[in-house]
Design a protein around this nucleic acid. Structure first.
Length: 103
DNA sequence: AAACTGACTAATA
DNA sequence: CTATTAGCCAGTT
């Protein structure tokens, strides 16, 4: 795998439980602004043994991107305390991760 | 090396 | 709200 992905993963791993972050946010925190696409691309390369909380990474609309595991992701987040609206959206004003925040 | 791809985002209309 | 357009650029083929 590519080393570039490692920093993306490390950033994703820093997302506190019960919170989420957007692709663009992860990209910036990883030191690669405007590379939102890289995030999803990198996460898609994750294998089963990964310990990366990929489920906490969502798009800017507060929704889960279309993909085979979308519903699983939603379920996992709910178990962490994240609340979804009827339309399956997350209130980013409440659940988006704010870097620097202490847990 | 060149073309193709993609879990995105923001701006317009 | 939906649809379209353009920007982004490393990894894969």
């Amino acid at each position: 795998m590519s080393a570039s992905y490692e920093k993306i993963y490390s950033t994703v791993k820093r997302i506190p439980r019960g919170q989420v972050a957007t692709y663009g946010q992860i990209a910036e925190l990883s030191g690669i602004p405007r590379q939102a696409r890289r995030i999803g691309y990198a996460l898609s390369a994750l294998d089963d043994g990964s310990v990366v909380p990929w489920q906490r990474v969502i798009n800017s609309k507060g929704e889960i991107s279309e993909r085979p595991f979308a519903d699983l992701q939603q379920t996992l987040l709910k178990k962490e305390g994240v609340v979804f609206s009827k339309e399956g959206r997350i209130d980013l004003t409440r659940f988006q991760w704010k870097p620097g925040q202490r847990t």
